[in-house]
Amino acid sequence: MSRLQACFEALKFRNESALVVFVTAGDPFPGETWKVLKTIADAGADVIELGIPFSDPLADGPVIQASSMRALEAGVTPPSVIDDVRIAREAGVTVPIVLMGSWNPVMQFGMTEFANAAATAGADATILTDLSPDEADEWKAASNVAGLDTIFLLAPTSTQVRMDKVKPFAGGFIYCVSRTGITGMHDNATIGVSELVTTIRTNIPDVPVCVGFGISHPDHVRAVSAVADGAVVGSRIVQQLHETRDLNVLAETVATLKAATKR
């Protein structure tokens, strides 16, 4: 059983949803990403998404774009992100770690090499926001061999055709995009999410559904937890960490968000 599968089963048993926390590798502490990951895990997050910065992301809002630019300027590279995962595992981080980014850095690394290196370091899955199943045959095969789950996105615009297309590719969880748009904090993040999650569950019954994009407040997490298997918080965490550079503040925020996942 994969780490992600075990995680969602345990949460189901405890009647909680997953708190999924996103941070960009190397921002704000290049070389000490493991401390950030350890803090997030110890504060109660169930899954960590670790962002691989890309110069030209299409799905990211201003907060994560700026974070990516800072990380790139600090010298973060795909190999250094994989190293971050390995070091975090050595430091005792046991929650599932999902690498999230754009396709080109993975392609340039070599897709088989990347899948193997990521899995060996202790990563559990990937989310590549500009790689839809239409172009993902080889990536899916390489990930299967390496033992990495492939997480794909579904959105409010997704038709039946798209749900059918994503179904055989989906692993780990489905990343349900709460609204059309890019990442970032948003007041009305959870409107219409219930219907979308229900539709996805009907079409793809065996894979957990986590909701992201715009989720920033415990109220959002609570609303999402009522209907989905997990809530993803990214921009708020990234922004706060950048502004405070304080791991205690990070721990408090994560703990507060986690409390909202208990049904």
Partner: peptide
């Protein structure tokens, strides 16, 4: 049919856009 010129081209976009491109 999927927009490939030999190995080039294709459609590498966030899922949200795929239905609009279809």
């Amino acid at each position: 049919a999927r927009g490939h010129f030999g190995p080039f081209g294709g459609r590498f976009v966030p899922e949200t856009l795929v239905p609009a491109l279809d």
